[in-house]
Amino acid sequence: MSLRVYVIAYLIFLYAPIALLPVFAFNDGTIIAFPLSGFTTQWFTELTQNAALHAAVRNSLVIAACTAVFATILGLCAARAGAMSDFRGKKGITGFIMLPLVLPEIIVAVSLLVVLRQVLGLSLGNWTIIMAHVLICTPFSIAILNGAFAALDPAMEEAALDLGESRWSAFRLVTLPLVMPGIVSSMLIAFTISLDEFIIAFFLTGANPTMPVYIWGLLRFPSSLPVIMALGTILVALSILLLTIAEIFRRRGVRRAGGTDTGGFL
């Protein structure tokens, strides 16, 4: 019983910051502190009028969408290879691809910066962030898609081959529909990570900041803080929505492939 109390306290700890977001987003005061001073939707209205923010959001959406697509394609390759025959060195190679999962993000950021700027002399832009985000999102995609492929009976594709389909059409007609929920889930997760990623984006951003980079700039100006709270509220709501959809698809994928659910994104 005491364990249950502890777990509930832990959940409160986990949710405390997020719970405060809407509180201050609707608070009619420029200082983010107690006591509260009244209800307003002014900060949300201001959000709609901020052109620089809109540009940053658009930027981030483009980056996140590209990242989601490319990371999922790479993840599909790796997860499908993972479900196929073993060969010498397969574990090591997979481990190396999964490395960004534990690598400090600042290392990824500075090493890419060095290569792109100093070695290749390229100018930074959205594509440099996309490249880095694909790198760090691919391990997540692989983890999700591995789950989808592991739940898949390898005889399914063989059955399609046996019934006259070529390798590609067997993949298209049988495997792809069965892992499709995993693909959707992987894209949503990669999208969410990319949308929120700051550490790498800050190093690799070009002339146009991403949304987190823009927020980082605003954090220095106390007057803009309530607007950030309003933005944060929307982002949290959006994240929860995306994640719920991702989770539903992931579960459906496991079920459709005939497996039992073991739960979790990782």
């Binding site: 790479l74 993972g82 073993d86 290392i107 090493s111 790198l135």
Partner: peptide, 29 residues
Amino acid sequence: SPDQTRSITLLGVPFAYALLLLAVPLGAI
């Protein structure tokens, strides 16, 4: 086996990407 060859080819794509964007930059740094 053909299955192994396919497996290697498939894994080669994300591996090449990680090599290019992770190993090379780490070496550079």
